[in-house]
C-alpha cells in the first residue's frame, strides 16, 4: 500500500505546530498502525530527519498509552480498539490519512502526537480510590456478597484504561465518561460506599478545575471508547453527584 500521511508536527509545548505531509510506500495491510509509524520513523531517521513522537507502551490494547486521532476519529475508524490494535487493512491503497494528537485544553501537546494526560492522574488522586489496608491482611473476596449485576457493571466500568479517547472525541472535550467510569466502579460496590460522597464531589470538582468541557450527551465518547464504557456510567455519576451535593 502507498499512503499519504498528514501528521501534526510540533517541536515542543510552546511551538505553534503544523500538519506535515509524508509519503510512505510498501505498507503491509497486516501491519498495525503503530508499526506503520515505526516504518515511517525508520525512514525519517535514515534521512536524518526528526522522527514523529507518539505515545505507546503495551501495544496490546491494555495500557491506554496510544492516543492518535486518525482521520477524524479517536483510535481511528474501527470500533472497540486502541490505536495499537488498528491494522492497515482498514485503509486502502492511495489513501490520505490524517494523524493528530488528542485536542483539549486540559491535554496540552508535549511534542508532535504526545499529549500530557496528567489531568486524568490528578482526577484519580482527588478520589479515585478506596482507603483499604491491603498490606498482608486482605479479606477473603467472598466475605461481602455482591450481586452479580452490580459486580458485572462495576467490572465493566473498571475496564476503562484512561486513554482519553472520550475527551478527544467529545465536541466539548468533556471528561465525563472517564470520571464516571472511575466513580461507578466504586459506587457499585459496598467497599466504595464509605467515601462515596467525598469521592464524587472531589473528582468532579477536579475535573472542572482541569478545564474539561461540559457533557452535552452526544454519545460520541461511548462510540469511540476502546473499552465500550457506557453512557449509563455518566447518568450514575450525575445521580451520585446530585445525591452527594444535597447530602453534604
Amino acid at each position: 500500500m502507498n499512503l499519504t500521511l498528514k501528521i501534526w508536527r510540533q517541536k515542543n509545548a510552546n511551538d505553534k505546530g503544523k500538519m506535515v505531509d509524508y509519503q510512505i510506500s510498501d505498507v503491509s495491510p497486516d501491519m498495525s498502525f503503530l508499526e506503520m509509524l515505526d516504518v515511517l520513523n525508520t525512514q525519517l531517521i535514515e534521512k536524518g530527519e526528526e522522527p514523529v513522537a507518539f505515545d505507546h507502551d503495551c501495544r496490546e490494547g491494555i495500557c491506554g498509552s496510544c492516543s492518535l486521532y486518525i482521520n477524524g476519529e479517536a483510535h481511528g475508524p474501527d470500533r472497540l480498539i486502541t490505536t495499537c490494535q488498528l491494522h492497515m487493512r482498514k485503509f486502502k491503497d492511495g489513501d490520505t490519512i490524517y494523524i493528530e494528537p488528542w485536542r483539549a485544553k486540559a491535554f496540552p501537546v508535549i511534542k508532535d502526537l504526545i499529549v500530557d494526560r496528567g489531568a486524568f492522574d490528578r482526577i484519580q488522586h482527588a478520589g479515585g480510590f478506596i482507603s483499604v489496608n491491603t498490606s498482608g491482611n486482605t479479606q477473603d473476596a467472598n466475605a461481602i456478597p455482591i450481586e452479580k449485576a452490580s459486580a458485572d457493571a462495576a467490572f465493566d466500568a473498571a475496564t476503562c484504561i484512561g486513554c482519553g479517547a472520550c475527551v478527544a472525541s467529545c465536541k466539548n472535550s468533556s471528561a465525563m465518561l472517564f470520571v464516571s467510569a472511575k466513580v461507578s466502579q466504586f459506587a457499585l460496590l459496598p467497599q466504595g460506599q464509605v467515601e462515596a460522597t467525598d469521592r464524587v464531589l472531589n473528582m468532579v470538582n477536579q475535573m472542572d478545575a482541569e478545564g474539561f468541557g461540559n457533557c452535552t450527551n452526544t454519545g460520541a465518547c461511548e462510540v469511540e471508547c476502546p473499552k465500550g464504557i457506557s453512557l449509563e456510567n455518566i447518568a450514575r455519576m450525575n445521580r451520585e453527584y446530585l445525591k452527594a451535593s444535597f447530602k453534604g
Binding site: Y98, E100, A104, K105, A106, N172, G211, F212
Partner: peptide
C-alpha cells in the same frame, strides 16, 4: 474554550 485548537479533520 475547552478546545483551543481544532482538529484538521
Amino acid at each position: 474554550n475547552a478546545r483551543k485548537v481544532s482538529y484538521a479533520k
